[in-house]
Design a protein around this nucleic acid. Sequence first.
DNA 1: AACATCGTCAACCGCGAAGAA
DNA 2: GTTCTTCGCGGTTGACGATGT
Length: 250
Amino acid sequence: MEGVGGSLGVRKGAWSKVEDDLLTACVLKYGEGKWHLVPSRAGLNRCRKSCRLRWLNYLKPSIKRGEFSEDEVDMMKRLHRLLGNRWSLIAGRLPGRTANDVKNFWNTNVRKSKVSSRKEEIQYAEPKETVKPHSVIKPQTRTLSKPSPCSLRKWFPSKDQDGTTQCHITQPCAASTECNDNHNNNAKDKWLGTAIGDNGSNLENDKYFSGNQDWTLMKDFNLDEELPTDFLIEDQSWSDFFLDINLWDL
DNA sequence: AACATCGTCAACCGCGAAGAA
DNA sequence: GTTCTTCGCGGTTGACGATGT
């Protein structure tokens, strides 16, 4: 792996202490971001991607080293069941852990243990009752074509007069024409990140899905009676949907 | 001691999304 | 609307140390 790689003469492979020091000094001075400027600023013969990765996965001061605690592993399993291989989202809920750490840990420890210990997998990955195989939640359920106008946290679907599903906050959403099921993955991620308390939000916050005062206590709301069912995927109720993303119930 | 195999984890690659031009 | 650039992500690779034979 070591050596000068590529036709452009950009260095690849393991990082030296000197390179680490240069990169650290650069990021501390200029801050994270603008990675395309980092190699020249730091005086490194590395590509921007390599610089970014080295910082985020190894040099960043907040990174926690050492073994994963039982709690972390437990949380990881729950989140993985919820999110699938969304390592960055999972890592976001594990302070100090990077997506790469989580991914590596999962691929080595958890996967391995699943092979040798089918029992534990059943405990985490399958419902006790043999209903349907539990599918990993992919936020195709209700996503937004653009995250901003619907505001994601404030957004909520309802049926309009002509029968089309629209987004409403306290006022009809400005982007209502885009609020059908045709939404992109980034919005899904942001929405889901919001739903699980990304951005440092509190999972226990009962008002999490609010934005409209009527929805302040979502857990107490009778979802199935009040919400439009045409927004749900087949054979799913709103209760099912919100149940799925209630981490505290996992 | 020598070799083979396994496990870990840092690093690379390719792709898609988003924003700017 | 199209093209280009940048960023961020997940999948994969490969170096290297540990362990087994």
